[in-house]
């Protein structure tokens, strides 16, 4: 019984939150890795692109709620995601047309584009704060739990409860669907293959008649969609705040680099590696450990390796360790 209780506690406090968070990071890291693979720079504005997409989705959600539209047990925000994607795509494409395109024509070095993306980051950040404001917004509605801790205890008779929030289930399901669709697109469709070809060898792609501008356009479309989905899922799970999204940049970059920049599989693996280490290292293990250990060995303290405030430190340390031993990341990066 203790063993089962321990497992349930582990699932409840570590596995489920880490899987949900990992999915969100993976979606974010996929966007970063696509830009790195195709446009060949790390996009500092990615966190804020997520914020912009989510902002449009939040505004739409409020509109829908005001009109009395609802999805029943599901959060209304799911209906708003397409609008969020639309908004983010529009902004990103405008940015590409009026900002990035010029530098492509100049054959600018990637590091110049990194600096450009800093400017874009400032603008997106300002826009988000001007339009929706800098505060914390919650926009999740519908049924809060698929299984609440109490129901689970009643059902199983265990001491520990297992709470499964609707948003967590939605996060994982959406992430799986989106990732599957992305991989199908990249590996099976002509456009997807042309993106991989462009990432692998730009000159040869050109000689094969692949239109670079089209590849870039499709990339931005996908990135804006991924960013919005990741942002909305994160916001549903936690809340929406412009500054938090900007700060997500570090774990997302870390995930993309740990996995191997430019490699989509790596981005996903990296997202989960970072999420599991963050949750695992900042979780107080006392509760779980008491179930597994004989009473004599029960720990006194909380068995929390680091306080939750240090979660950024964790992503960073994992990153350094991986880079020290595998400089190209878990999966060999560079091209899609």
């Amino acid at each position: 019984m203790d063993f089962l209780n321990g497992l349930v506690a582990l699932a409840n406090f570590v596995l489920i939150p880490a899987i949900a968070y990992g999915s969100q990071l993976a979606l974010g890291a996929l966007g970063v890795t696509l830009i790195y693979g195709i446009l060949r720079f790390s996009n500092f504005a990615h966190g804020d692109t997520m914020a912009v997409g989510t902002m449009f989705a939040v505004l739409t959600t409020w509109g829908l709620q005001a009109m009395g539209v609802s999805l029943g047990p599901f959060p209304t925000a799911l209906l708003a995601i397409p609008f969020g994607i639309l908004g983010a795509t529009a902004l990103v494409l405008l940015t590409d047309r009026y900002v990035y395109k010029f530098y492509r024509a100049q054959k600018a070095k990637p590091v110049i584009l990194v600096i450009v993306s800093m400017g874009v980051m400032f603008i997106y950040n300002g826009l988000t704060r001007i339009i929706i404001g800098p505060d914390d917004y919650r926009f999740a509605d519908g049924e809060r739990f698929v299984i609440s801790a109490r129901t689970f205890r009643d059902m199983t008779g265990l001491e520990e409860g297992l709470a499964l929030r609707t948003t967590q289930v939605i996060t994982v399901v959406t992430a799986v669907v989106v990732v599957a669709a992305l991989f199908w697109f990249l590996n099976k469709t002509r456009t997807g293959k042309s993106m991989r070809a462009f990432s692998d060898n730009e000159d040869l792609a050109l000689l094969s008649g692949i239109n670079p501008e089209r590849v870039v356009l499709v990339t931005w479309l996908i990135v804006a969609s991924l960013a919005t989905v990741a942002g909305v899922l994160y916001g549903l799970d936690k809340s929406f705040k412009a500054f938090t999204y900007f700060q997500l940049l570090l774990p997302i970059f870390a995930a993309a680099i740990v996995g191997g920049l430019g490699n989509p599989l790596g981005a996903i693996a990296g997202g989960f590696v970072i999420a599991f280490s963050e949750v695992g290292i900042t979780y107080a293990w006392k509760k779980v450990l008491t179930y597994f250990m004989p009473p004599a060995l029960e720990p006194d303290g909380l068995v929390q390796i680091l306080s939750t405030e240090y979660k950024f430190a964790v992503s960073f340390v994992i990153l350094v360790i991986v880079l020290l031993f595998r400089p190209t990341g878990l999966f060999r990066g560079k091209s899609l």
Partner: peptide
């Protein structure tokens, strides 16, 4: 929040 936008 204008200042962020302006700096960009």
């Amino acid at each position: 929040h204008m200042r962020l936008l302006t700096m960009g």
